[in-house]
Write a protein that binds this DNA or RNA. Sequence first.
DNA 1: GTAGGTCATCGATCTCTGTCAATATCGATT
DNA 2: AATCGATATTGACAGAGATCGATGACCTAC
Lengths: 104, 104
Amino acid sequence: MIAAACPPLLEEPLDAERAEELAAALKVLADPARLRLLSLIQSQPAGEACVCHLTAPLGLRQPTVSHHLKVLLQAGLVEREQRGSWAFFRVVPEQLRALRDVLG
Amino acid sequence: MIAAACPPLLEEPLDAERAEELAAALKVLADPARLRLLSLIQSQPAGEACVCHLTAPLGLRQPTVSHHLKVLLQAGLVEREQRGSWAFFRVVPEQLRALRDVLG
DNA sequence: GTAGGTCATCGATCTCTGTCAATATCGATT
DNA sequence: AATCGATATTGACAGAGATCGATGACCTAC
């Protein structure tokens, strides 16, 4: 996806292209609504949640939540499963781990 | 400073205030110029660099580099030491480690 | 097929921020 | 003190993105 198996940030100089990639990956996380989305989804009993259960605790409208979920989805941080009318999202920890590894 | 000794992101639900703090800390890192600055400074032989040695490899003007260094400084990611006319910057790894730990 | 509920997309607005030129500040040197 | 070089600050501008209302697409149930 984005930044798996990259050398840690401080180990060798970063060329411009890789810096752009890594910054883009971090930008996805650098938003309070998206951080809370990840945390909220993960803290659900089944580890998954649909959009309608996420708008109220965040205090954001449905289109805004959908937008953030799309960003998280494209970054590989969540996965989406359609079940009937509902779209269920769950956290994909691998991508988060990859980001963490790049920082140290 | 910002996010040391916080519980990992996916372990307990994030309240709005802490989400803001963590997002602000990540936003500092989520910029290609600042990532390259950290990497460049760290890769210097003495582990330190002055502004005049950083503008050329980044392809950015001196005020822009100064601006980014100030952001990194306020986030505790670098430290600054004035020596004569030159300002030397070096990476402070603790803050980076704290950020990494919050992600996993 | 009609109605109601769930989610995504579109378009607009507004704020934030990365960048630069110009200028100011400060130290060193003569 | 006068000048030169290094760095910081200011002000302006442009692009990015967070948010929302309105709308569209889709599924379910009656």
